[in-house]
Amino acid sequence: MGFSQEIITEIDNIWQANLNHPFVQEIGAGTLPIKKFKYYMIQDYVYLIDYAKMFALGALKSTDLTTMTQFSKILQSTLTEEMALHRQYAAQFNIDEGTLASAEPSPTTLAYTNYLLSVAQIGGQAELLAALLPCMWGYETIGKSLAHSPGAKHALYGEWIAMYSSSEFSALTEWLIQKFDTLTTQQTSVQRTHLTNIFKNSLRYEVLFWEMAYQEEKWLV
Rank of each mutant, 00 (worst) to 15 (best):
L100H: 07
E127D: 15
S165R: 11
L132V: 08
E127Q: 14
T108V: 12
M163H: 11
Q92R: 15
Y112R: 11
H154G: 09
N114F: 00
Y89D: 07
E104G: 03
E168Y: 11
Q125M: 10
K153H: 13
I95H: 10
S149R: 04
L172E: 12
Q92F: 01
C135D: 04
L100C: 09
E174V: 00
G151N: 04
A162D: 10
H148L: 09
E159H: 13
S167I: 11
L132E: 02
S167Q: 15
L129R: 04
S166Q: 12
T109S: 15
E97G: 03
L110H: 13
T108W: 02
Q121F: 02
W175K: 06
Y139M: 11
Q92N: 13
S170Y: 04
H154Y: 07
F93Q: 12
I177A: 07
E127L: 02
L116F: 08
I122S: 13
M136E: 09
A90Q: 12
T99L: 13
L128I: 00
L172H: 14
Y157T: 04
T99A: 15
F93S: 07
I142D: 01
I177S: 05
A103Y: 10
P105E: 09
T113I: 05
E104K: 15
W137G: 04
G98Q: 15
L176A: 13
L117V: 02
G98D: 14
A90S: 14
S149L: 00
T109V: 11
E159P: 01
L117E: 01
P150T: 00
H154N: 15
T108R: 06
M136N: 11
T109Y: 03
I122M: 11
L100W: 06
N114Y: 06
K153S: 13
A90D: 10
Q92D: 11
Q178W: 00
T113V: 10
I95Y: 09
K153V: 00
F93Y: 14
G143H: 06
L172W: 09
K179Y: 03
E168F: 08
P107Y: 01
S145G: 03
Q125I: 12
N114R: 15
S145E: 01
P105T: 08
E140S: 10
T99Q: 15
A91K: 15
S165K: 10
T113L: 03
Y89I: 02
G123L: 05
G151R: 03
C135K: 04
G124L: 05
A101Y: 09
I161S: 07
T99C: 12
P134A: 06
G158Q: 08
T99F: 08
G123M: 05
Y139V: 07
G143A: 08
I142P: 02
M136R: 10
L117N: 06
G143C: 08
L176V: 02
L156A: 10
S166H: 12
G98P: 08
E159F: 03
T113Q: 07
L146H: 06
N114M: 05
W175F: 07
S149Q: 02
G138K: 03
E127K: 09
T113N: 09
S102M: 14
I95V: 15
E127C: 05
E104R: 15
E127M: 03
I122T: 14
P105M: 08
T141P: 05
V119Q: 10
L110F: 10
